[in-house]
Structure formats: structure tokens, C-alpha cells
Amino acid sequence: MKSLKKRRRIQVIVVAALALAVATGLIGYAMRDGINFFRSPSEVIAEPPGATEVFRIGGLVEEGTLQRGQGEAVKFRVTDGGASVPVVFTGVLPDLFAENQGMIGTGTYVNGVFEASEILAKHDETYMPREVLDALKEQGVYQEPGEG
């Protein structure tokens, strides 16, 4: 009688472990397109990603590079102080988007140009995304407010 209970318990544990493994695999498979890695302009220039890879780029909008085209087309360059990457975006920019301000864009890098599908701008004068802040500090460009 004890061996039947023991066998049943082992079967339940094995089935539960398999179900957990399948669920984890399905979650990972579903999220594969939703994960966007962050890169600084220096990282993009040093190791250009593939043309189909969707990622985020962040830095400061380089002064004097913002060009508004026809309709909603916009061109500018994003920099981290070490490198600069041209960006093209078609759409409505956030209200706080401006030159010398922090931004993060989501898109692809095709033929040396970052084609953004989404642009995010900082939401006040002190906020900057942690990834952008870290990249700017690494390049020696960023100074804490009041240091200056």
C-alpha cells in the first residue's frame, strides 16, 4: 500500500515539474519580441546591431541637428558624448522633446541610421532614464545638477 502512495506522489511531482517547465518555455517564447535591449550611441557604433533587431537607444539630442521634414518626419542625432547616431522618426514628438535634452528611442538600425518607431523624452528638468544617465557618466559627459 505504501509503495502505491509513494509512486502516486512521484508521478504528481513529475507532472507538476513538466507543467512548470512547459509554462516557463511558453512565457519565454511569448516575450521574445517584447524584450528591447538598451544601447548607447557608442555601443551602436562599436558593434552595430542587425537590421531586424529592435532595441532602445538613448542619450542627448545633439544641438543643431534637429530637422523637421514634411509632415511628421523628423531627423536628428543622438549622442552620449563619445559617439553620435543619426535618427529618423515619423510621428508626433513628445512636448518636452528638444535639443540638448535626454531621450530614448525604440527602433532598428538600418544602413547607419536609427529608424525610430517610438520616441520618449524626459518628463521634467531633472529626470533622465537610468540607462542614459549611466551611459553619459561613463563617457564623462554628465555632471550632477549644481556641479557646474
Rank of each mutant, 00 (worst) to 15 (best):
F37C: 02
L18E: 04
N100I: 00
G59I: 00
A16D: 09
A116H: 13
P94K: 00
R7H: 08
E72I: 00
K5C: 10
T90G: 12
F38Y: 11
R39E: 00
G102V: 00
A16W: 02
S3F: 15
R9N: 09
R68E: 04
M1S: 13
A135M: 07
G28R: 14
E147W: 15
G148E: 15
F89P: 02
F76N: 02
A73H: 13
M31L: 14
N36V: 14
F76P: 00
Q139S: 12
F38S: 01
V61G: 01
R32I: 04
Y109E: 06
F89S: 03
L133S: 06
L26T: 14
V141D: 04
F37P: 00
K6F: 13
N36Q: 11
K75M: 09
R8P: 00
P41K: 04
K122E: 01
R56M: 11
Q139K: 15
K75Y: 11
G34S: 10
H123Q: 12
L20S: 14
K6Q: 12
I10S: 07
G50A: 07
I119V: 14
N36M: 13
M103I: 10
F97Y: 10
D95S: 06
F38A: 00
V61L: 02
A51E: 15
G71M: 03
L4Y: 15
D95E: 07
Q70D: 15
G140P: 06
Q11F: 13
K2R: 09
V61A: 04
G146T: 02
P145R: 08
G148L: 14
F55H: 07
G25S: 12
D134V: 05
A21M: 07
Y29P: 03
L136M: 13
E62D: 11
D134R: 14
A17K: 04
